[in-house]
């Protein structure tokens, strides 16, 4: 059974009422800023198809430190977000690790902090940080026009991301199952 709740730093959808929610799928973005909504839409897609009591799905429009607060306490976090790269093809999906952002660590940000710095900060403060963070980023075409719809290229990529995230979760579940006890 899927039910909605408002809790923590996030807007959550929980699957069942399992006591332990160790994995978090987090859609990040702005739901009314065209392609910037792709991460949130993909997270909603994952939530609809997911049937695993140990996985929470959430969405947030926060960044920086708020993002850090959202992921504290989970063993594993999958973040779905958008990205813009020079020459990138709209709808292209990338799988990344936080280390891919590491070169940004040394830059002081004109506004808040980036994901990698947030994770480093959490470790430094001995917070219960996830052991693994994976980021699925969708190449966005338009993140500056107010609209509830993504561009067609990005809209088409969302089911692919949903499928990939579900596969990733399934793989993880299988691995855990096969672990010798």
């Amino acid at each position: 059974m899927v039910r909605e709740r408002h809790s923590g730093a996030l807007h959550y959808t929980e699957c069942n009422e399992a006591p332990e929610m160790k994995t978090l799928v987090l859609g990040v973005g702005n739901p009314i800023l065209c392609d910037d909504a792709a991460g949130i839409k993909a997270a909603r897609g994952v939530s609809k198809q997911l049937n695993n009591p140990k996985v929470s799905v959430a969405e947030t429009s926060a960044a920086g430190l708020s993002l850090l607060e959202s992921i504290v306490g989970y063993d594993r976090v999958i973040i779905i977000d958008t990205i813009q790269t020079r020459g990138g093809r709209a709808g292209q999906v990338y799988r990344m690790e936080p280390e891919d952002f590491s070169s940004a660590k040394h830059f002081s940000s004109p506004h808040q902090i980036n994901l990698f710095t947030a994770l480093e900060l959490g470790k430094m403060l001995n917070l219960a940080m996830p052991k693994k963070v994976t980021i699925f980023a969708i190449e966005a075409k338009d993140i500056t026009s107010f609209s509830e719809r993504c561009t067609p290229e990005v809209e088409r990529a969302i089911p692919e991301v949903v499928r990939t995230v579900l596969e990733e979760l399934e793989l993880k579940a299988r691995k855990n199952k096969n672990k010798p006890t």
């Binding site: 702005n30 910037d36 991460g39 960044a63 952002f101 940000s109 004109p110 994901l115």
Partner: peptide
């Protein structure tokens, strides 16, 4: 950085409606 120090007190947030990675507004 000295030039940025003139910018920082205002903490302009003109484009923060966008959350695309890396989650910061570069300058």
């Amino acid at each position: 950085n000295r030039i940025e120090m003139a910018w920082r007190p205002y903490d302009p947030c003109a484009s923060c409606a966008t959350h695309a990675l890396p989650g910061q507004l570069p300058l």
